[in-house]
Design a protein around this nucleic acid. Structure first.
Lengths: 199, 199
DNA sequence: GTCTATACGAAGATAGAC
DNA sequence: GTCTATCTTCGTATAGAC
């Protein structure tokens, strides 16, 4: 029974030691980001923190960008499954955002990678975030469709558009919150419930 | 009569030739971004496109980051004054976003600088965007307050919070649109009118 | 004041030794 | 699998020409 890496990103290291090493890199990297901020995201800094050379990191990941995407994906996968069927669309959004800002460096990493994704015509980031937005939007839209059918959410705007708006709202408020922590992230995002409520 | 630079950013170049050169740099830089994408944002690339040495750029701007902020500020200042008093808050947001995405490289530059702003504890970007969000939020909130008083916008959410939400929405949708141009930016943002309408 | 030449250190990436 | 050495590009700093 093989222990296949879950991600499409960085397929190397399928053997036991390689897999362990790969996990160690991902686990440590997010900590380095949290501790050292932007200065801790270079290959050499991360490698130093782990105790290997920067060339070793490139043995497991094709590029710095690929490593960063894998780190984000890994950190995101560690979060609790958001799929309480009882939770409303806005509740899911608020929960995700709250967990996000609770991990130091997470919003910064997200923001950096999204910026890279929209800058580069064809890079690891672009592919990852295009797929991610598609997936998150689809999930959110389905939830909203159910709520529209149940009569709790307004149906004068289609679910896909509402999903796009809620995700944009969440991303944007997280950014503003980092620049002005006096903003009440949870409260602000929760107000979306009133905005999308059935009339 | 001195011809003082309008911005706090990059105060050098008060003499005739210097002022002209500085304008040329700002004008050309945004074009280079549009033409060459992320690969065109290095000092050496920009300098090459303008026909000067990269050291010259640092004569007018203290750092690459400061140059990039100045370029963004300059490009933004070229836009038509958004202050038609007849326009609604959402109309202003939609107009600004539409003009934004109409300038190639603009959203990418914005995104890159915001990412830098939230990464660096104390940098040019952080100061600029903290102030900018504050200003844009205040302007938008005032507009919303007027609309609440006029009875066209719901007043169960305070104007400051609504302003934060509208700005977040605009930023977020622009990002998603770059990764998936099938999203109708104008239509999606315009739907906000219904969301914040008085009940 | 304007601008170039040059040097330094850090960065991502690659090649090849072990 | 991991290292060192090396290449190239980058931001930045300085010295000095005009």
């Amino acid at each position: 029974m093989e222990n296949e890496p879950k991600s499409v990103i960085g397929r190397r290291g399928s053997y036991a030691k390689g897999v362990a090493r790969r996990q160690e890199i991902l686990d440590r990297a997010i900590e380095v980001f949290a501790e050292r901020g932007a200065d801790g995201t270079s290959l050499r800094r991360i490698a130093e923190a782990i105790g290997v050379s920067h060339a070793t990191l490139l043995h497991y990941f094709d590029s710095r960008e690929q490593l960063l995407v894998a780190v984000y994906e890994h950190a995101e996968s560690l979060r609790q499954a958001p799929e309480d069927l009882e939770q409303s669309s806005v509740d899911v959004m608020v929960a995700a955002a709250t967990e996000n800002v609770g991990v130091p460096g997470m919003v910064q990493l997200y923001s950096t990678l999204v910026a890279t994704a929209i800058e580069e015509p064809a890079g690891e980031s672009k592919e990852f975030f295009t797929r991610r937005f598609e997936r998150v939007r689809t999930d959110m839209a389905q939830r909203l469709r159910d709520e529209q059918a149940a009569g709790t959410v307004r149906d004068d705007i289609d679910a896909e558009t509402l999903a796009t708006m809620l995700i944009a709202l969440s991303d944007g408020v997280q950014t503003q919150w980092l620049l002005d922590p006096s903003i009440d992230l949870r409260d602000t995002l929760s107000r979306a419930t009133a905005l999308i409520a059935a009339r």
